[in-house]
Design a protein around this nucleic acid. Sequence first.
RNA 1: CGGGAUGUGGCUCAGCUUGGUAGAGCGCUGCGUUCGGGACGCAGAGGUCGAAGGUUCGAAUCCUUUCAUCCCGACCA
Length: 499
Amino acid sequence: MSSNLGITSRSENYSEWYNELVLKADLADYSAVRGCMVIKPHGYGLWELMQRALDDMFKATGHVNAYFPLFIPKSFFEKEAEHVEGFAKECAVVTHHRLKPNPAGGLMPDPEAKLSEELIVRPTSETIIWNTYKDWIQSYRDLPLLINQWANVVRWELRTRLFLRTAEFLWQEGHTAHATFEEAETEALTILNECYTKFAEEYMAVPVIKGVKSEGEKFAGADHTYCIEAMTQDLRAIQAGTSHHLGQNFAKAFGVQFVNKENQLEYVYATSWGVSTRLIGTLIMAHSDDKGFVSPPKLSPIQVVFVPMGRDEATRERTVGASTTISDELKKAGIRVKTDLREKESPGFKYNYWEMRGIPIRVEVGPRDLDAGTVIVARRDTGDKETVALADAAGRIQTLLDQIQKDMFDRALEFRNANTKRVDTWEEFEQTFAGEGGAGFVLAHWDGTTETENVIAEMTKATIRCIPLTPLEPSDAEPGTCILTGKPSKCRVIFAKAY
RNA sequence: CGGGAUGUGGCUCAGCUUGGUAGAGCGCUGCGUUCGGGACGCAGAGGUCGAAGGUUCGAAUCCUUUCAUCCCGACCA
């Protein structure tokens, strides 16, 4: 950090900018545990709002919450070959259940307390859940089973980054069981459309592209994987959510069968889907600026902050009083407000302080404005300030919150569109991704093989983010020839460098 | 798991080459003056120099070992 004021600018060093922002906006901190972060109250407040909105959507689409164990017997993992391969490299394993004094000092695992079967700290819960579902499902009348859980998971990442990739993270994972392939398909798409896309666009104000993952990028153990992909300000792609159609893979691995209406035994069809605290990283990368975090109003733990001015008691009484009048009215309307009553800090300090933390609206309440019967209302996203009559303030602020939410989405969409292009020659494709940083979304033709995908990734660092469910432009759905091999291609797919 | 760097008050770092009373700025506490875009003065508190060995009369400084973190690459939500 070059100074204790402000943060590195995005243009100077995007990666530094992100790291400093997370710390200085009070969202999270490094912990004493390697690869694990502390989510601070401001960051956790954001997560709570995300949870609430998503949970409401899950409930509205017929799901219920439950909780499954943190520990999973190793043997469960061994039952689904593709799945094991996907996660084996990054699992934390519990081997003992007791400590004893170490002769060399300190403590050591008691060799006599070795577990007969090692336990894996869940990297995801498909296996323990399907082992449980086996006992819950006998008849078609038990289906569909629509369960979600809010939990922490552990993936032993070698290289971590606050929110984007940590060894432990918080998420939700939905696990559903269905009688038919079509029903499971509908479920996977319902989550994608009615929950994840809606959440990203309406709450996070982040436009996303819905698509299917290529064979190489799909979830280990899935039949196919749907995803939503967002664009960061440094022109990379970031996956904001995934919804998997697991087919009968896990049902077969765990022997989950049901009797259908014709009294025949059948394997159930499954889905699983999740979003994580990574969404906070996505939010930062999509909207924030060189002054710090910029939060969309719907997810900001504090939506409006009041800064009353004046030092002498009489002035303070006036400015705090006026703040209270407005904030009380806002509270009644369900707006989350805060009045900064700290006496030692100057108003200027407070402006910067709350801007760093991304609070959408600041209300400056000073004696000169009060003399004129007004206050100043400042927007975090644009920096615009306006003078508003006291009587109109609460109403104006509510309107502005909606406006900010909308404007943030519109700007992000415009940015994404401006950085999405179609490329038809390998020369141009290679050149586009030649630099160090991201290059936006590139729609290009691909022959559909994993081999080609891998060659392209090796040569350019760009990967297939998804095959869009609906073409961004009608012509994207027309057949063409692969950018690398010249073989036939069904449609354009999205290439980008990814987080 | 490879390559690089760094560990010294809460934070950012100086001191180490050339061993000899542990420093600065920010933050923190108190008092006073300030308050419309990161205020100032004065007085304070706070550190087994990442850990363990070793060399030495004497180690933050030299040697050995170790641990941790960060950055850059391969894997991942």
